[in-house]
Amino acid sequence: KNAAKIVNEALNQGITLFVSDNKLKYKTNRDSIPSELLEEWKQHKQELIDFLTQLES
């Protein structure tokens, strides 16, 4: 999976991924984040940080 797909899947579940101080963060109104999503974010962390940083610049 690529970073764009992961970010879109998160958005579809009401979760916004973003970068703050070079760290991957998220915002959501959900009570909890599915563990498989958290695991996927960890596996692709640097790719996600790079992707989101490019989007914001």
Rank of each mutant, 00 (worst) to 15 (best):
K1W: 08
K1S: 11
N2S: 15
N2Y: 09
N2F: 08
A3M: 11
A4N: 06
A4L: 10
A4W: 13
A4T: 05
K5V: 13
I6L: 11
I6M: 11
V7F: 13
N8L: 15
N8K: 15
N8Q: 15
E9R: 10
E9A: 08
A10C: 04
L11Y: 10
L11R: 13
L11V: 06
L11H: 09
N12C: 14
N12R: 14
Q13T: 04
G14H: 05
I15G: 01
I15K: 01
I15M: 03
I15V: 07
T16L: 14
T16F: 15
T16Y: 15
L17M: 04
L17F: 04
L17E: 01
L17V: 02
F18E: 05
V19C: 05
S20L: 13
S20V: 15
D21M: 06
N22S: 09
N22E: 07
K23P: 00
K23L: 12
L24D: 01
K25P: 00
K25Q: 14
K25L: 14
Y26F: 12
K27H: 11
K27I: 12
T28G: 06
N29Y: 10
N29P: 05
N29H: 11
N29R: 07
R30S: 07
R30N: 10
D31Q: 12
D31Y: 04
D31G: 11
S32V: 09
S32G: 07
I33Y: 03
I33T: 03
I33F: 07
I33R: 01
I33G: 02
P34I: 03
P34W: 03
P34R: 04
S35Q: 14
E36R: 08
L37D: 02
L38E: 07
L38R: 06
L38G: 02
E39G: 05
E40N: 07
E40G: 04
E40Y: 09
E40K: 09
W41K: 00
Q43N: 11
Q43S: 10
Q43W: 07
Q43Y: 10
H44Q: 05
H44V: 05
H44Y: 14
K45Q: 15
K45G: 08
Q46E: 11
Q46M: 07
E47G: 05
E47F: 05
E47Q: 09
E47L: 11
L48N: 00
L48I: 14
I49C: 04
I49Y: 04
D50S: 08
D50K: 08
D50A: 12
D50F: 10
D50T: 10
F51S: 01
L52S: 00
Q54A: 14
Q54V: 08
L55F: 12
E56F: 07
E56K: 13
E56L: 12
S57W: 04
S57H: 13
